[in-house]
Every structure is written in structure tokens, then in C-alpha cells.
Design a protein around this nucleic acid. Structure first.
Length: 575
DNA sequence: GCCGTTTTCGGCCCGACTGTTTTCAGTCG
């Protein structure tokens, strides 16, 4: 079993937990957490990097020691490295730290004073009232622990961005009606367009004395009030989404927006820049000693430490601060840059709307072209098209193009990539289309090597244009199939084909880091809705968000081209 | 344990809320 970056990151996080319980130096703990994060964000496998003789100490937060541990974990597995830290503490103890209200200190107390090692033992002790007497604990803490254990809270629930958006928009509307409210904006990972949201952070500026917090905690979708202060309140909604509202004065709006947008890692890095300049940055402003020198706008905060304003989608501490410092931030692609959509379905297969309805909906969005890419015959469950039906479909598209103005339909197919890597329709049929979108819809279980070769072979086909949803994942529902995305991206460059960013909120596939990798390799990306109804064009904004998180600019996205510029790109130039 | 426009040592981001305290530790983000 190959060891992936995420596995090594998990080992480092466990070490960090164990060190915290042991009361180790907090900065040493942080070093392990930083390294874990670096590994999770990395678009390449460290195993492959080591094989190619690359030096891991070039990676942020990885020094000589941790590079050695990574090597050890890859060569001999994680047990040896972990054993060293597990010596003094039983395995599984770190699990207790994931229970809300329990951190390293309390877990240590529970273990040392009562010998508690598992959730079950903790539950027994809490039920028997043996927790409340421990130092640092009380009746309320005991009760909260009990509730957390019984509610199985602590299992991190994340919400897909599009779902969170529904709750966020409704809540913002509710809060707006509170007297004295001036500005109100969702910040946090929501503003950064992360594909899933752990909780929702809403920033409010309001006149002093505004009853905003009372209005917030009494919102009828609130299930539980977790905290209720004058500047900070937290609730859990009935849908289980946690929402934090922070109120600041108007002069602190920029600093607070910057602060609550995060990410945490980005903010830490920005503050370090501040420290180097003798400045303190917090949610109220930028301070030189006692003097407040910036903070009314986000731009002023960044300017105070000598860097350009960073778009929220880039704020992950993946090099954006260095780029901002050097004046080399990308000019990110925007929704309005998109001129067309290269992946959509109709009633002919598993879509809900007619060709004409889809065309008109796309035109209404201001799109200049829409590729109709219904399924091919192999996907029987979707009534996939055989050559005969496809040819009829193409004729219908041509007729409609004659009839409509302001939108051009392109003749395409979402053709199944068969297990062998062959495409599901004959070459002469594929050759009559404007573009061929290839996709894997079955045999997700193939080995990494077979899956990769299957896809590479499909891309070799002379008519292949775009690889749809390249990893096949459904967020939180289906893991990506095992495929060497580095090879796929390199192959796309060699063969001159494109990779999709599927804008459906459950897919968002390519991921942000793979977008970045595609850009580095010079592979163009197509932001497509994969629309199955006229409503799905709304999803384009999520696809754009994902592309922006991947540092993509207008020129990196193939469907920002006008139809005239696009056409020659669709004709593959095979070398 | 990492890192360097104060560089190989001595720093390492900052504040709110809660509960358990009697001035603050722990947790969280």
C-alpha cells in the first residue's frame, strides 16, 4: 500500500496531539501541525518526490528532522515513528481531544487522575459524576461532556458550499432587519469559496446598542446557543451548522473582515510580516505601539505590511503572501469572463430540459456558446446515445442553431471511457462532432496503474477534447478513484487536451491544487456546469470559485475564449 | 521543530467566551 501525503499528515497530527497532552513546547507542537498542513495541501506526493531525489526541506515547515521522519514513514511505515511518542500515553487517547470542550490539559487530567483512555470510560465516569470533582472541571463541564458524547458531537460535520450558501443567505436576510446594523457579510471559508464549510462566520458592523446578538440567538432555526456575548456569539442551527457572529465598529471593518476571512494559516503568516515591521495586527486594526495605523478597509491592512490585497480564495498560505509581496499575484478569472459552457445535458439522455430551453437559459446567462454533451450508449441508465440517435441529435442542434440568435450550440458528447481506455463510440461518429468530452463512469475500483493508463489511453484518441470530472469524486460521498493526476496533467499537455473543473457543488473536480498544477504545466482548464437542467447554470459561480482557489487567470481557462477563438483550439493538432 | 530584509539563537499571532476561579486557565477559532 503506497503511503499518501494525507497518511503522513495524520501521523504528524497525532504526534502533535500526543505532545500537547505531554505538555511539550507549544511551538514544537505547532511545527508538527504546520508540517501536516503542508502535506495535505501539497499537490504532489512526497513519496514520488523522494523517489526523484528531491529535497523535502524545501517545503514550508519541513526541516531536516521532519524530512527524516517522512522518509522513515514512507520506507518503514508509521509505527516506528509513532511508537516513540506513544510510549508514555496509550493509543487512542488523542481521540478524546476531538470532543468539544476537551483539550490537551483536560485529557491529561482525565488520564492521570481517573485513568480514562476511551470515550466509553469517559461516558461512565461522567454518568457517575466523577468528573466534576477534578481540578479545572465542574458540573457544567461534566454535563457538556456527557451531551457531546451522547450527541456524537465532535464528529466534524462539514457542509458543501452550495448548501451552506442557502443557510447563509437566509440568515443574513434575517440579521439585516436588526436595528442599527450597517454592514453584514459572511466571511471565513465561505468567503474563500472552500468546497466545504465547517462553520459559518458572519461579520457585522452595527451601532452600539444594536440588538443584533439577541436577534441572532433567537433566530427560529437556532437549535442551541453555544456562546452569547456582546461582540461574539455562536449557535448551532437545527441543521447542525455552527454559526458565529462577530460585531465590530465601523472603523475596524477591514481588519475584522481580513481577520475573520482567514485562513488561520494565512493570518498567522500575515501577522508574522507585521511583527517583522513592529506592527500588531488584530481584528480591530493594525497598531504601531498604541497608535492605530490601518484597519478600515482590508486593503489598508495589507498595505500596512507592504503587500497587495489578496483575493480571499488565495488566502491559504500557499505562497500568496510571497506573491503579493513581489507584486506577482495572479489576476484571477471571474464569472463574467466566461463566454460559454462546454458540458451540458438535455432530455435526450438524463437531463431535464429540452435543447431549446437549455440554449435559452445559457443565453440568458450571457453565454455566447453552449456545448451539448449528452451521454453515450454505454451509460444505459442515462439512456446514453448510440450513433444513430447521436446523429439525429446533431441534426436537431443544427436546426436550432439556424433558428436561434445570440447563442451557438456546439455538437458534443460526454463519451464513456471504457475500462480498456477505448471510447464508447466509433471514430467516424466522434469525428463529426465539435468536441468530445470523455468521462469515467464505472470501474472506479481499478488499481492506480490501470486507472491511470485507461485515462491516458482515452486522451490519446485523436478526437478527445476534454477530460470531465477528472478524479470522479463526489464530495463526502465517494472518494476519487485512484489515479496519478500528475501523469494525467502532463499527458494532457502533451496531447493538447483540456481538463474540466466541474462546477457542480458535489464535484468541484479538479480540486484547487490540481488546478494549480495544470496551470503550472500550461494545461488549459474548462469550467463547466455539467448542467442537467436550466437551474444548474447557477453553479458556474462555484466552478469559478474553485478555479480561483487554484490561482487560475482568464487566460488559463479555455471557455473564456470567444467562439471564434475557441474553434481552432477544439481541433486537436496532433504531433 | 522551524526559520532568517533584527539570520544559526531566540523568537515563534491574537483575542473572546466560559467555567472555575477569586485573578485566570482552558478552549476555540
Amino acid at each position: 500500500m503506497p503511503i499518501h501525503n494525507a497518511d503522513i499528515a495524520a501521523v504528524f497530527d497525532e504526534i502533535a496531539d500526543l505532545l500537547e497532552i505531554q505538555g511539550a513546547n507549544v511551538f514544537r507542537v505547532r511545527a508538527y501541525r504546520n508540517a501536516a498542513r503542508t502535506l495535505r495541501d501539497l499537490s504532489r506526493e512526497v513519496g514520488a518526490m523522494l523517489e526523484q531525489g528531491e529535497d523535502l526541506t524545501g517545503l514550508p515547515g519541513i526541516g531536516k528532522d521532519l524530512a527524516g521522519k517522512i522518509q522513515e514513514i514512507i520506507t518503514h511505515g508509521p509505527e516506528g515513528v509513532l511508537a516513540e511518542y506513544r510510549k508514555e500515553l496509550p493509543q487512542g487517547l488523542t481521540d478524546l481531544m476531538h470532543i468539544p470542550g476537551l483539550g490537551p490539559k483536560r485529557v491529561k487530567t482525565l488520564y492521570h487522575d481517573l485513568g480514562i483512555k476511551t470515550r466509553e470510560q469517559l461516558h461512565q465516569a461522567a454518568t457517575a459524576g466523577r468528573i466534576r470533582g477534578l481540578t479545572g472541571f465542574g458540573e457544567k463541564t461534566e454535563q457538556k461532556i456527557l451531551e457531546a458524547l451522547e450527541a456524537k458531537a465532535g464528529e466534524a460535520v462539514r457542509f458543501k458550499l452550495a448548501i451552506a450558501a442557502q443557510y447563509a443567505e437566509a440568515l443574513v436576510e434575517h440579521l439585516k432587519k436588526a436595528p442599527g446594523v450597517k454592514q453584514i457579510v459572511p466571511a471565513g471559508s465561505y468567503r474563500r469559496f472552500r468546497e466545504t464549510i465547517g462553520d459559518l462566520d458572519i461579520l457585522v458592523t452595527a451601532k452600539t446598542g444594536s440588538p443584533i446578538m439577541d436577534r441572532f440567538v433567537s433566530y427560529d432555526e437556532v437549535d442551541q446557543v453555544l456562546a452569547h456575548g456582546s461582540t461574539k456569539s455562536s449557535v448551532r442551527l437545527k441543521c447542525k451548522l455552527q454559526v458565529d457572529v462577530r460585531v465590530v465598529s465601523e472603523e475596524s471593518y477591514g481588519a475584522a473582515l481580513q481577520y475573520f476571512t482567514g485562513s488561520k494559516a494565512h493570518n498567522v503568516a500575515l501577522r508574522q510580516l507585521g511583527v517583522q515591521r513592529g506592527l500588531k495586527i488584530n481584528e480591530y486594526g493594525v497598531f504601531k505601539g498604541e497608535e492605530r495605523i490601518a484597519g478600515d478597509t482590508e486593503e489598508s491592512v495589507y498595505a500596512a505590511v507592504g503587500v497587495a490585497w489578496v483575493p480571499p480564495e488565495l488566502r491559504e498560505n500557499r505562497g500568496e503572501i510571497e506573491a503579493a509581496r513581489a507584486g506577482k499575484l495572479p489576476k484571477l478569472v471571474e464569472l463574467r469572463d466566461l463566454r460559454g459552457d462546454l458540458h451540458a445535458h438535455t432530455k435526450a439522455t438524463d437531463g431535464r430540459n429540452s435543447l431549446k430551453d437549455m440554449a435559452l437559459a445559457a443565453r440568458k446567462r450571457g453565454l455566447e456558446y453552449l456545448a451539448i454533451t449528452d451521454h453515450s450508449r454505454h451509460l444505459a441508465v442515462a439512456k446514453g446515445l448510440d450513433p444513430k440517435r447521436l446523429l439525429m441529435h446533431m441534426e436537431e442542434i443544427e436546426r436550432l442553431n439556424d433558428e436561434l440568435s445570440g447563442i451557438t450550440l456546439l455538437k458534443g458528447i460526454e463519451v464513456d471511457i471504457l475500462q480498456s481506455g477505448e471510447l464508447d463510440l466509433p471514430d467516424d461518429v466522434l469525428g463529426r462532432l465539435d468536441l468530445v468530452v470523455g468521462a469515467v463512469h464505472d470501474h472506479f475500483e481499478l488499481s492506480r496503474q490501470k486507472q491511470t493508463e485507461r485515462i491516458l489511453r482515452a486522451m490519446d484518441h485523436p478526437h478527445f477534447t476534454i477530460l470531465a470530472h477528472p478524479s470522479g469524486r463526489l464530495i463526502d460521498e465517494r472518494a476519487p478513484y485512484d489515479v496519478d493526476m500528475e501523469r494525467v496533467i502532463r499527458h494532457a499537455r502533451e496531447r493538447g487536451c483540456f481538463l474540466e473543473v466541474n462546477a457542480h457543488p458535489e464535484r468541484l473536480d479538479l480540486t484547487d491544487t490540481h488546478c494549480q498544477m495544470a496551470k503550472e504545466q500550461g494545461v488549459l482548464v474548462s469550467i463547466n456546469t455539467d448542467a442537467h437542467s436550466v437551474l444548474d447554470f447557477d453553479n458556474l459561480r462555484f466552478g469559478v470559485g474553485q478555479a480561483r482557489r487554484g490561482w487560475l487567470e482568464k487566460s488559463d481557462v479555455v471557455n473564456t475564449r470567444s467562439l471564434r477563438e475557441l474553434k481552432p483550439l477544439l481541433t486537436r493538432t496532433m504531433s
